[in-house]
Write a protein that binds this DNA or RNA. Sequence first.
DNA 1: GCCTACCTGGAAACCGGTTTCTCACCGTAG
DNA 2: CTACGGTGAGAAACCGGTTTCCAGGTAGGC
Lengths: 330, 330
Amino acid sequence: MTVHRPTIADVARRAGVSRATVSRVLNGHASVDPDLASRVRMAADRLGYRPNPTALGLARGVTGVFGVIVPDLANPFFPELLKAIEAAAATADCRMIVADSDEDAAQEVRLAEDLCRRCDGLILCSPRMSTARLRRLLADRTPIVLANRVEDHLGIPAAAIAIERVVDEVVAHLVELGHRRICYLAGPANSWSNATREAAFRTATRARKLRSLVIRAGSSTEDGYEAASALPESSVTAIVAFNDLVAFGALERYLEAGRNAPTDISLVGFDDIPAARFAAPPLTTVRFPKAELGQIAWQLLKERLDGRPAVVRWVEPTFVARGSTAPPPA
Amino acid sequence: MTVHRPTIADVARRAGVSRATVSRVLNGHASVDPDLASRVRMAADRLGYRPNPTALGLARGVTGVFGVIVPDLANPFFPELLKAIEAAAATADCRMIVADSDEDAAQEVRLAEDLCRRCDGLILCSPRMSTARLRRLLADRTPIVLANRVEDHLGIPAAAIAIERVVDEVVAHLVELGHRRICYLAGPANSWSNATREAAFRTATRARKLRSLVIRAGSSTEDGYEAASALPESSVTAIVAFNDLVAFGALERYLEAGRNAPTDISLVGFDDIPAARFAAPPLTTVRFPKAELGQIAWQLLKERLDGRPAVVRWVEPTFVARGSTAPPPA
DNA sequence: GCCTACCTGGAAACCGGTTTCTCACCGTAG
DNA sequence: CTACGGTGAGAAACCGGTTTCCAGGTAGGC
């Protein structure tokens, strides 16, 4: 406050020209007498002038800031996504507002409405809100991109993971090992990625004439622990968990019951978080190209800001077999 | 674009009053005829009027946005910190811009300079820039708070982890187990938290008449792997790593050499990332109260924005003994 | 030599709010 | 009945930029 940051008026005064001319010189618009131009540039330099981003935003109607909403920053999937998005956006000198909805759809809507007003665009990561809510948001005309969710009839650009093939691969892997009773520990109810994983799981098991056993869990280690409470006493020999954290939660429950993986139970997760590699046993999982996903999400937003049409782009995950899967106990 | 968002002028027109009156009513300033006031409120309601945040920012000189810079979003420490900061800031309806400096001090300075202009304040998490750079930033008068770094003579508010006692506890734990040759795998050179951990390590070892062996590593798993390359062939029996990731990297190197923890080498990390608990062996480490740290950082920023004086606040870490430490091989 | 076309750069309007200034009108006191 | 203080609300200035509009000067063509 006490230090007065130089404004365009200060530069204009010092260069002996109008503010309009300063603006033109600094933006390279129209043609300005080279002499004047260099005087303006010198003045701006001497004063250390940098245009005020807020004023710029108001005048141009573009802020250079976009928003990202995630359901849970503590879930390792999202920081990795964010890192890729931020890195891509930085090349276009765009800043990223991050908001955490805490897995709460209502909160997510509130955040989205707020960010729509203050940002040039929005990336919704694994949004939990309903399709109807999403449609209402779109009415705002703020460019929106989905990451890790696809809405077929809304015409929203989306970056998503093609899951069917790899889920079939997971089930095939378990069946080949000899498993017949496989349980899916489902993720959050309103999560698109859970819906697709669950559907793919049902398809893959049904195709092999197996029962599609599903227990609702959630997205955290605690959720996995809770959901698996009755499993150690059941006839289930293999678990496919919504993500690696849920798989670890289930594992904890088994360890508590004096069972271990993969001898008593085979475990598969999704994400390949860093912990998966170092766990005991190392977790068999599905790796997502998160960096690619984030980069694509930014790309899609940029295209949208440039007025290009909405498209859906898919990335391919890969199956990673590690030590947590083995033949079922005899 | 095509849909015209209602402005204060639209509300004024509809209510048959001036823009000034609308502003006064909506902000509860001065006294307004109750009749007029309700007409204004109705009009605003009917139009679904929400003030433009950019214009608000320009007029009030306060944007309701603050910035956070972290060295690496992929390091699990920072997302947890961010989550706490964001949650605390959300209660004050403040939005958070997140930028990743990629461990690059120069980039960090550039980001900080940019964010200083567009934000009400700045939280620098584990900043890598020099004290001189930091001092120059302060000249901008934008409120700045440090998280996980303390600068004694700059009068910057800071939230930091008091490390000396717990490092002594770590070394005591290892010495009690019988270790005499303990190696510290150091973190990034310009990291304050590394400097304090390294200093505390030297103090604790010297106090017990042990050599203070230090090898420079870094902050990632890869750094730990690289730095530990010669260790399996050395006489070192215990490693204190800059953080859990570095510890895992070192472990990987030992496994590759056909050694294992804790039989051949004892390992201690810092952070207690989620993976630490599930690793094989479960990692002995130091847990930081990250949620508290983040909340304090926000608190300090808020105090600064309110013009209150700068203070340094410390949080206490706790030692977590797990399976990766044991007596040295006979 | 004069008219027109173009170029340059300043004045002013604009983006969408807030806040100061000012004036009209009210009731009250002298 | 008049002077005065207080209050409520509109006009206008302001935040710091961009952009449109227009006037003045110069150059080129006839």
